[in-house]
Design a protein around this nucleic acid. Sequence first.
RNA 1: GCGCCCGUAGCUCAGUUGGAUAGAGCAACGGACUUCUAAUCCGUAGGUCGUCCGUUCGAGUCGGACCGGGCGUGCCA
Length: 556
Amino acid sequence: MGIKDILINTISDALYDCAGKGLLKVKQVPPIELEVPRIVEYGDFSTNIAMILASAEKKAPRSIADTIAESIRGRDTVLARVEVAGPGFINLFVADEYWHNSLRDIEKLGDAYGESRIGEGKRVQIEFVSANPTGPIHVGHGRGAAIGDVLSNILKAVGYQIVTEYYINDAGNQMETLGKSVFLRYMQLLGRDVDLPSECYQGEYLADIANEVIAKFGDRYLDTPDDEAISDLADYAADKILQEIKEDLQDFGVTFDEWFSEKSLFKNNKISEATEELKKKRFIYEKDGAFWFKTTAFGDEKDRVVIRANGQPTYFASDIAYHKNKLERGFDMIINIWGADHHGYIPRMESAIQAFGKKKDILRTLLVQFVNLLRDGQQVAMSTRSGEFDTLNEVVREVGKDAARYFFLMRNSDSPLDFDLELAKRESTENPVYYVQYAHARVSSILRVAQEQGLDIPGFDDIEIDLLSLPQELTLIKQLLKFSEVIEGSALSLEPHRITVYLNELAGSFHGYYNKNRVITDDHSMTMARLYLVKMVKIVVKNALGLLGIGAPERM
RNA sequence: GCGCCCGUAGCUCAGUUGGAUAGAGCAACGGACUUCUAAUCCGUAGGUCGUCCGUUCGAGUCGGACCGGGCGUGCCA
């Protein structure tokens, strides 16, 4: 049981006690809210319960608070002090002893410290990146990749069963365009005088692919019918590009459990199955020669075409079939991580989910705002079309995997991200990723020196825990013990950046403590106590960095 | 026009389910290395939380209007 639950029980018991003695009228205890006050003087936790009860009790909040506080003081609790303050807050000060003893959990759990079971083994599918195999992935995809990857780590840590998935858009118009682009490059390389129209992909990587095709198959596509050549070259290029995408992601520390092909939906008739089902359910109707999904029935602003007048299904049709497939796989939750430019599709997908008879909140969509890549203060243009872009791979090579991941994870995904390449490269105090890693390296160094001096790194039972009584030490301990709660909050809100924010704070506390206090001194008992504390810091920093997929270096 | 996201210190951003005196980093200024890692720390300065109304004991947080920025608003993907 966490400290919050313990305290909620305490308060609840006190309320019943007061009611029993006739001091309060309350019959049913309302939900008790516990907050962590911003100001240390207001205690470790604070409750507004007296203010909530005021109107029902017809008494001043402060007088109710006094009554409750008195009752709490009379009980055997983990509290050192209970105070009534302000308009009627009850401030609770947890005894140092409780915090000290809780360190044992960190030691005992080690690598598993921070994990929990709130996910109850529920099955969650999380789809991210899903970039079209028409070009290398760029930094925008990188942000989605980092967020999706870390989110899945976090959800696993709190007890969900996770399947990560990449949806490959290997069908539809963009494949045609890809094939055509490669074909034209191919012809150019073989000396034919053809232009590459602006609607084609312009990137140089397509010339590389065309060169490969020449090396493998010579000029044979000059004599095959255009349709066939384009189709073959599209397949060839898409495979090749997808391989490169996989490699880029791997270098970035991101792998997927499943690679789901859009083409497979067509092959297995899944598109027509899905649309037929919706027709039967009367969610699809015909108008102007096309078939429309009645998304307005679920609150969308207008109905959407699923099959064009020319008989071709739209991208939306594939997505409906894909999500139907996700539902059939029986997940308890489906998470989509999309670029913010796709926000208009959320009502559409929610409509599809509901049309298949599920609640729309089984689907949770995370919108990731754009990355502004800066180099020397200048914004770098990103467009696959124009051929000018900064690929994820280039960024990872330039700043390293750790810095890239950390930068992508620093901010709420709701906010656009300024990614300054120069800053991320700098090995200095301005660069936040080093700040955190340095904390880990420092702890490691202390432990190393201790061992070199023949000291055994102590366990809980080897030390006098009371010696850790400095305010800075208690702050540090409380922060360490907050870790599980941070992970849970991060999981429930789908906000991985909370981990980076937490890590930054924790590293700050540690650096401050380190600079003011020596761990290894002539005082053997104190040395052992502090070595223990520092070891706990190491565990938490390492676990947190592990969730982020960032290295925890022993030395820097 | 309509829809979604954002607006907090000079800059980049945190801010849990509404709580008491709004936080951090960078930049600026001033300090701390015969010491377990100075990739660090300490201090100073910096704010009408875009504006206005509302909800309430209490609003950066909830609601409405407006202003500013981003992105959507295809029988493209």
